[in-house]
Amino acid sequence: MDRLWTLITLLHTLAGPVLTLLYPLYASVVAIESPSKVDDEQWLAYWILYSFLTLMEMLLLPILEWIPIWYDVKLILVAWLVLPQFLGAAFVYERFVRENIRKYRGIEHHHHKSPNVKGKYKFVDFITPKKGEHEAY
């Protein structure tokens, strides 16, 4: 029974890195090489959400340490984001993130055109590619 428990613990420990990093890395490379843009959206959305989750986890670590099932909850959430049966990352991005980004960019774009604002968004303009700027790739 002790060996079985050790095996289960080992598999549980390995599940996190495999599910959150190894499989998404592999799937991202496959997506880049495929002609479809659907899988590109899924994996870009995953990396955005995973980065956000990691940042929130770092900030909330003192609180999360008191929640004994946090690791299991995180594994289930990441499995939903990652697994191709669910495409959770694309769903969350489409449903929640994209709408807010479009609102923000619309406000940003509106301020940029305002004659009273000089130089305020130069850095944002510098790091944000213009339409058609990277079509040569």
Rank of each mutant, 00 (worst) to 15 (best):
K118A: 11
V82R: 08
P35G: 03
A89K: 10
L53P: 01
V38A: 14
K131A: 11
V124W: 12
D125K: 14
E133I: 00
V30M: 12
E108D: 00
Y46G: 01
K74V: 01
W43Y: 15
E65P: 05
P129S: 10
S114C: 05
L4A: 10
I63T: 11
E65I: 06
Y137S: 06
I67W: 15
G106N: 12
T6E: 09
I63H: 10
W43Q: 07
W80K: 08
E65A: 08
V30K: 14
L4R: 10
E33S: 13
H111G: 02
V73H: 06
L44I: 08
H111N: 04
V18D: 01
Q42F: 03
V117C: 05
L60G: 13
L59P: 01
P62D: 00
A79L: 11
K122M: 07
G106Q: 04
Q85F: 09
L21H: 11
L21M: 11
I48C: 11
E94T: 15
E135K: 12
T9Q: 10
Y137Q: 08
L25W: 15
F126T: 02
Y93W: 13
F123T: 04
H134D: 05
F52P: 00
P115K: 15
A27K: 10
P24C: 06
V97D: 00
G132T: 01
V38P: 03
V18P: 03
I8A: 14
L22H: 13
L53Y: 12
Q42D: 07
A90M: 09
V92W: 05
S34N: 08
W43K: 02
H112T: 07
H109P: 01
A31S: 14
L55D: 00
T128P: 01
K113V: 04
K103S: 02
Y26T: 00
V29I: 09
G88L: 09
N100M: 07
I63L: 14
I69F: 15
D39K: 12
Q42S: 06
L4D: 02
F91I: 11
P17S: 02
L49K: 06
I101F: 14
W43R: 08
P115V: 13
E65S: 09
V78K: 03
L10H: 08
R105K: 12
L22F: 15
K122R: 14
P115R: 14
P35C: 08
T6N: 10
R95V: 10
P24R: 00
F86R: 11
M1R: 07
R102S: 05
R3F: 15
K103V: 00
L77E: 00
V29K: 12
D40C: 10
D40K: 14
A90D: 05
R3Y: 15
S34T: 05
A45S: 15
F86G: 02
P17D: 03
L87A: 10
E94H: 13
I32S: 07
N100V: 03
D39L: 09
L64I: 07
W47N: 05
T13K: 09
A27R: 11
Y104R: 13
Y71H: 13
E94K: 15
G88Y: 04
